[in-house]
Each structure stands twice: as C-alpha cells, then as structure tokens.
C-alpha cells in the first residue's frame, strides 16, 4: 500500500538513494526524448517540433489514469499524497512569468540539467539565471511576502474546485490530449515543409 515513505515502509537513508535513482531515470527519459535541446523544446510553440507536448501530455495522462487505477485497487492511499497547495493570484503571476522565461530561455530547470550534462552552454547559462532569479526573489521577498502568501485556497484538488469528478476530468484530458496529438501531427507536417530544414543538435 503506497505511498511507501510517508507510511514508514521505506525508512532511513534510503530516501536519498531513491531520490537519486528516480532522478537518473527522469534525466535519462528527458534527454532521450530530446529535451536537452532548447530548440526542440520551443519547437512546440512554433509548430515545427511538438515533442514537449507529446511527452508532457502523455506523461500526465498516464500518471493520472495510473493513479486512479491504483486508488481503485487500494494500492495507494490518496489521503497521503501531497497535493500542491493553490495560492491563486501568486501562482497565476508566477506561471505567466515562467511562460516568458520558458520561451525566452528555452529551458525549464529539469531540462536545463540535462542540457548541462551534454555540454550545452546555453543550458548552463540558463541554470545560472535560475540561481540569480531565485536570489533576487529572496532578497526582494519582504516587499511582497504578503502577496506571496495571498489567496491560499489550501491543498485543493481539481475535483474540489471545478466540481468534476477525477474520472470525468481525466477523460476530458485524455480526449483533448489525443485530439491535440493528432492535430499537432498535421501541423508539424505542414510547418516542416515550409521552414528551412534546421540542424538538430
């Protein structure tokens, strides 16, 4: 019955070993899918390479469906699962800023680590930028600490806020996702015909 660590089934120093192993798998999958290249990542926004959409959405859908089946079979105790708390306004602002950063920088933290691993200087600079950004944030924190904590809706789930049951929401996501996969396949074919064949890195 999961989750294992919060219930003490796995204890002690194993935490960090597991973290390392899971991270290695994560990094491997990211790099092998092509996320170590910033041009691959931003391709989704310009229509020539939808790898981000495909990997990301597929992963979310698989995890959601899997989680619901696990819950059904009693293999995981959903009460013990950490639900990211929702701070409405700060998160909206944060997501928008991240959207800019994502587009301009061409990476996100996880993928930038894989970029560094294969020697991409822009990934290293991006990570450096992350460091600076977080530092700036912390120094300026007293200015907006109230804002940071505002609008705390608690650890709400989608079900609680949107009123859709988990199964219904998953189904909607699956349908939308699958539709997106087929549509983007068509778009990609068309866009690639028109732009110069670009050198993959």
């Amino acid at each position: 019955m999961g989750p294992l660590i919060p219930q003490g089934i796995i204890t002690g120093g194993w935490d960090f070993v597991i973290a390392l192993l899971l991270g290695i798998a994560f990094g491997f999958i990211l790099e092998a899918s092509g996320f170590s290249s910033s041009r691959n990542i931003t391709g989704a926004f310009y229509g020539y390479n939808f790898v981000v959409l495909r990997v990301f959405l597929t992963a979310v859908l698989v995890a959601m469906i899997g989680l619901l089946y696990f819950d059904y079979f009693g293999w995981i105790d959903m009460d013990l699962l950490y639900i990211l708390p929702t701070y409405l306004t700060p998160m909206i602002i944060g997501a928008i800023i991240m959207g800019f950063g994502f587009l301009i920088g061409g990476f996100c933290p996880g993928t930038s680590y894989t970029g560094i691993a294969i020697g991409k200087l822009d990934a290293m600079v991006f990570t450096g930028g992350l460091f600076i950004g977080i530092f700036v944030f912390s120094e300026a924190f007293p200015l907006f600490s109230d804002f940071y904590y505002s609008d705390n809706m608690g650890n709400v789930t989608i079900t609680e806020v949107l009123g859709l049951s988990a199964e219904v929401f998953t189904m909607i996501m699956v349908v939308v996702g699958l539709a997106a996969f087929w549509v983007t396949w068509l778009i990609e074919k068309r866009v690639r015909k028109n732009i110069n064949p670009y050198k993959f890195e």
């Binding site: 859908l61 469906i65 059904y72 199964e167 189904m171 699956v174 349908v175 699958l178």
Partner: peptide, 10 residues
Amino acid sequence: LMLVLAAGLF
C-alpha cells in the same frame, strides 16, 4: 487503448 483505459475508470 488510452481511450479504453480512461473509459474503464467509469
């Protein structure tokens, strides 16, 4: 397959 799995939840 994915549609079936999702529908299976219902």
